[in-house]
C-alpha cells in the first residue's frame, strides 16, 4: 500500500528572544547555538511519521520584533497549528502570549494552539527562577483548549515530542489530510486528491 502524505502548516509565534529560531534549529539540525534576530520569516520542512502516514510539517519561524507583526499575519494565515512561545524565565514574554492567542482565535478560529515555555534548562538547573506560574499557563490553556509543553532547545528536551504531538493531533482531527490549507504548494492539490482517494483506508489504518 502506498504511504499517504499529509501536509501540516505550523507557525511559531512569540516575543523576540524567547527562542523560536532555536526550537527550529534543534528540530531540524539537532543543534543549539547563537542565532541573530530573525528578519521576516523562515520556512523549513520536517518529515515525521504517524503510524503509516507520512506527515510533512511546514514550519514558519517568524520574527518576534514588532515591525514584523503586521507581516506575521500572512505567515499564520491558513496555518493548521500555532506554537506560541514564551520564556519561562521572563514574565513579559508571557504577556505577549495572550496577545498572540487573541490574534489567532479572532483570525484563524480553526487553528490548534500550543503554548510552549522555552529555556526549561535554565529553570531546571536553577540559573534563573521560574517567572511564569504553571497555574496561569494551565488556566489560559484550558480557556482556549490549547496544548502546553515546557521545552529546552539547549538540551532538546520535549522538542521532538512537541512536533510529534502536533502531527498526531492533526491526523486525529483530519484523518483525510489537508482540509483548510489551500495556501500550500500547488502539488498539494495532487496530495489532496490522493488523500481523498485513500481517505477511508487511511482513517481506519493510519490513525489511532
Amino acid at each position: 500500500m502506498v504511504k499517504s502524505k499529509i501536509d501540516v502548516k505550523v507557525v511559531l509565534l512569540g516575543w523576540s528572544s524567547v527562542g523560536k529560531t532555536c526550537i527550529v534549529q534543534r528540530l531540524m539540525y539537532n543543534q543549539f547555538g547563537d542565532t541573530s534576530t530573525t528578519i521576516g520569516g523562515a520556512f523549513s520542512s520536517k518529515r515525521v511519521s504517524v503510524g503509516d502516514v507520512d506527515v510533512l510539517l511546514g514550519i514558519w519561524d517568524t520574527a518576534g520584533t514588532e515591525r514584523y507583526q503586521a507581516v506575521n499575519r500572512s505567515y499564520y494565515r491558513r496555518a493548521n497549528a500555532a506554537i506560541v512561545c514564551y520564556d519561562l524565565t521572563n514574565y513579559e514574554s508571557w504577556d505577549k502570549v495572550k496577545f498572540w492567542i487573541d490574534e489567532l482565535t479572532t483570525n484563524e478560529p480553526d487553528i490548534e494552539i500550543y503554548i510552549i515555555g522555552t529555556k526549561l534548562d535554565l529553570v531546571k538547573d536553577n540559573t534563573e527562577p521560574r517567572a511564569v506560574p504553571i497555574e496561569k499557563v494551565r488556566e489560559l490553556a484550558e480557556r482556549y483548549r490549547a496544548h502546553t509543553f515546557e521545552t529546552s532547545s539547549k538540551t532538546g528536551e520535549n522538542i521532538p515530542e512537541l512536533f510529534q504531538t502536533i502531527a498526531e493531533n492533526f491526523c486525529k482531527k483530519y484523518p483525510q489530510g489537508i482540509v483548510t490549507s489551500n495556501g500550500s504548494k500547488n502539488n498539494s492539490s495532487v496530495n489532496l486528491q490522493d488523500n481523498n482517494n485513500n481517505g477511508n483506508k487511511k482513517a481506519s489504518s493510519g490513525c489511532c
Partner: peptide
C-alpha cells in the same frame, strides 16, 4: 547578516 543558511526565508524589504 543573517544566520540561518538552510531554510527558505521570506521577508519584506
Amino acid at each position: 547578516s543573517s544566520t540561518i543558511k538552510d531554510s527558505e526565508s521570506f521577508m519584506p524589504i
